[in-house]
Nucleic acid binder design. Sequence first.
DNA 1: AACGTGTCCAACCGCTCGCTC
DNA 2: TGAGCGAGCGGTTGGACACGT
Length: 318
Amino acid sequence: MGHHSCCNQQKVKRGLWSPEEDEKLVRYITTHGYGCWSEVPEKAGLQRCGKSCRLRWINYLRPDIRRGRFTQEEEKLIISLHGAVGNRWAHIASHLPGRTDNEIKNYWNSWIKKKIRKPSSPNITKTIPKSQLFTHTRNHHQVLDNFLNINNQDNLAATKLSTTSIQETGGLFPLPISPSFMFEIGSTFESTNNIPHTIFQENEGLMMNNQETWQLFNRETVEYTSCNLTLPIMDNLDNIMVPNNCGINVGGGGGQITAVDCMQRNEINEWGVDPVQCPNYFFWDQAEGHHELIGAEEIISTSSNMGDLMISHFPSSI
DNA sequence: AACGTGTCCAACCGCTCGCTC
DNA sequence: TGAGCGAGCGGTTGGACACGT
C-alpha cells in the first residue's frame, strides 16, 4: 500500500477542488495526457496526490462526462443491471456512456433509500414442483434447478453465492443475486375479480400449454434472447406456491393493472403496488413488443400496455 | 433567527488486481 | 517467486445544502 504514502504527505491538499485546481488539471491532461497519475500533480502544479487527480478527472473533469439527472432509460438499465451483477458499479457504469461508477453508486444509494425500503420478508415456505412449473427446451433446466435449490436454502446464504452462475446459466435468469423467474401467458389476459382462480385458467386463444417463443431479458448483457418455453395449465393458485416476493400482474385489455400479493393472495392495488409497501415488486412491460424491467412506481402511473400475466421473483434484500 | 435533522454527492480510504523487475 | 508499485474498485465519510421546527 505504498501508494497511500503520497496522500499522507503534509503538502498534499485535500477536500473539494477549487476552480483553479480544476483548470490546472484539465490544462495539463488535455495537453500531456495522464500516463502516470502519480506524476500528474507535480507536472500540473497541483498540491494533490495522483490518486485524487485521477478521481477528479474521471469523475468530474473528463470531457465525455455526462452530468444531470438520470433518464428513465438509464434508471431502468441501472435497476436491471444491479439486479444482475449487484454492487459492481464500474460494470454497471460501463453500460451507461458518460456516467461514472461513483455517480451511479451515489444515485443508487439515494434512490434505494427512497424506493426500496427493507420489507418484512417472511421466508419462502414452499416452492413450485419442477414438474408443475414448466419445462425447458434449452439450458434452462439448470436455471430452474438453481432456482429451486436456492429456495430450499437459507435466504442469506443464497444471496452470498457467487455470480458465476450467471454465466453458467447463460444469464437468462440471473442467479443467485437475483433469483428471478418469470412466466407469462399468451396475449392480453383479462383480469376478473376472482384473480387467483383466473390466473391459470385456460383462456381461449392463449395456447398456454403450447410451446412458445419468448423474448427473455439477459440482464448481464442487456440483451433480449429468444427462448422456447412450454407452459402448463394451472387450475388455480392452490396448486402452485409462489415464492416470496413474487408479484403477479394481470393486465386487462383496457390496460388495467392488478397487482397481487402472492403470499396473501390479496389484491393490493387496482393500478399497481405501493413501492413503499411492496418494494420488491417489479414488473415487465412488453409495450413495445419486448420485455422491459420497470419499477413499481412506474406501474402506478402507467395505465396502458401492461398486458398478460407476469410473475417475477426478486430477492428480498439487495 | 437559530438550531436540528435529513439528503445528496464529491472525495477519500482501504483493499485487490495486475504488471514489472 | 515475490516485492513494489500504480490503477481501479467499492465502501464510507463529511461537508454543503435544504427543510422543518
